[in-house]
Design a protein around this nucleic acid. Structure first.
Lengths: 234, 234
DNA sequence: TCAAAAGTGTTGTCCTTACACCCATGT
DNA sequence: ACATGGGTGTAAGGACAACACTTTTGA
């Protein structure tokens, strides 16, 4: 076979927006860019798509290189193609966002890239259009989490209802009624109450829950209405 | 400035999934592919992204070339990047879907590409991964139309409630109660009743409505719950 | 014993659903 | 006059929001 002669070929990269929840607030994992231009400035982790490599594989490779994690939630966010987005040479970027359990990460942190977690309310200046990528990712996460049980991807295997609630409250910048909140999340049938309690953050202790993974998979695409109190949204 | 040497550059294309509603059912506009491989087979309209051209501009250019229409609803669907998706040479495709008023189109149809409308239930064999693109577009349309008043983009300026209802019924393959349906869509405040009636499709005639464009824009991103009767979904 | 967070139930309101009849008109 | 599709109201049930007190236990 011949090729499509006369057409211009373009560099294709993937960039990863990596969310992690530390129990208090949502964070993003950023690195110091390792090559010119803008070498040393804060950046999303990314890499060029290799010959024979799909976008998904490229994004997973990049994520694994930085976090050591495989098998995490990852979703294509958007393809950014502005001709001027990289001043060195036109590069299109397929942005992916992933949700990881920040505690899993800590065990395997890679210092090679000078990676750091930044609270999403305090993101530093970033290279190219990476801030726009992050804004879009935040928006999509809010959108999706309102309808699907996606935020469980950010939590460890065992978590408490107050932890879950503070995660939702952080994402929607809202205060929610804990009675209504627990009734609603429990009514989904997705949670399995454990016998033990988390005793660090309160004297009485809060019961742990685990996600029912089978129900999670089957119900994921149902619209579940996960925002208990939209009137409190700021 | 230098370039990123040593990295592989890839062909980048846009493909357009063009939806049109003819009053009866949803259709897609397909063309006969004009170049090898698979020349002459049914295909989505597409084209290579040109130097200096953004994805949005590329998709709009392709859409305009085929339909003569500019200023129509268009949204990035997904970036398809499987290394094998085009057997001739690796080509990534940024797929866009658009919703057009099929009547606007008819006035300006271009025969150059042997374009034809196909009911979405009777899509022929297509080149490459174009069927997968269409399936994803249908899914996204159903998803989005449940929450946002997006389907108005498919209708002419003046339309009737029965027309609107049959559009929703077609998309969701469901039967809806016309009393509940009209109450719900009218309660959004998005529709302005006209004084004249559409008399073609019934003896009594049905009142025309127009979209309140200002409210449409302001309410577009609110979750409006546009599926009146989810229990009837098949 | 006190402070701090966890846990739990009830009521009113609103939204959603189910459902049936009359109207206008062309043939 | 009748057949066809357009248009409307009501009642019952379910979901959601508002709201306050008791429990546990570490300090």
């Amino acid at each position: 076979m011949t090729r499509y002669s006369k057409q211009t070929r373009i560099l294709v990269a993937v960039d990863c927006i990596i969310f992690g929840f530390d129990g208090q607030e949502m964070n993003l994992l950023l690195i110091k860019r390792g090559l010119e231009p803008e070498k040393g400035n804060w950046s999303l982790m990314g890499g060029f798509v290799q010959p024979g490599e799909s976008f998904e594989n490229g994004a997973a490779r990049v994520l694994k290189k930085l976090t050591g994690l495989g098998d995490v939630y990852m979703e294509q966010l958007f393809a950014f193609g502005d001709p001027q987005r990289d001043p060195m040479e036109r590069t299109v970027s397929i942005a992916y966002f992933s949700l990881i359990d920040i505690h899993q990460y800590e065990k395997q942190i890679s210092h090679d890239y000078h990676a750091e977690w930044f609270p999403i309310k305090k993101i530093p200046a970033l290279v190219f259009d990476h801030l726009a990528m992050i804004e879009l990712a935040k928006e999509k996460l809010r959108y999706k989490a309102a309808l699907h049980p996606i935020l469980f991807e950010l939590l460890p295997e065992k978590f408490t209802l107050p932890q879950l609630q503070s995660l939702y409250e952080g994402i929607y910048d809202a205060e929610m009624d804990k009675r209504n909140f627990s009734r609603k999340v429990l009514s989904t049938g997705l949670l399995i109450k454990q016998k033990d309690k988390e005793k660090e953050s309160s004297k009485r202790g809060a019961f742990y829950y685990k996600l029912d993974k089978r129900k999670y998979l089957t119900k994921f695409n149902a619209f579940l209405n996960f925002i208990p109190n939209p009137h409190n949204l700021k």
